[in-house]
């Protein structure tokens, strides 16, 4: 089922997602990739809700604006695990 494929901006707190594709302009795409946000990488959504999201990649935390989050296509692989 394709329900699990969505832009990162639609993910909720506690989701673990896998990056499928980055569908942005050259500049944004390259910047994200340089930060380690590349295809196949797992992201944990730590914070979201209208404004920018906070995600973790490995041991790094990033805040991403909505504009960018819309361009990162992800697959949800774990739902809403409670983050303490």
């Amino acid at each position: 089922m394709d329900y699990n494929i969505m832009p990162l901006s639609d993910a909720s707190i506690g989701d673990r997602v896998k990056v499928i594709e980055i569908d942005g302009g050259r500049k944004v795409t390259n910047r994200l990739m340089e930060l380690g946000i590349i295809e196949g990488v797992l992201l944990d959504v730590v914070n979201c809700g209208g404004g920018p999201l906070i995600i973790t990649v490995g041991n790094s935390r990033f805040a991403l604006g909505q504009g960018i989050a819309k361009k990162i296509i992800v697959e949800k692989i774990r739902k809403n695990v409670s983050v303490n």
């Binding site: 500049k27 930060l35 920018p52 790094s60 935390r61 990033f62 805040a63 991403l64 504009g67």
Partner: peptide, 10 residues
Amino acid sequence: DTSFIIELPP
């Protein structure tokens, strides 16, 4: 410019 990215250091 809509591309807001910033690292949140520990």
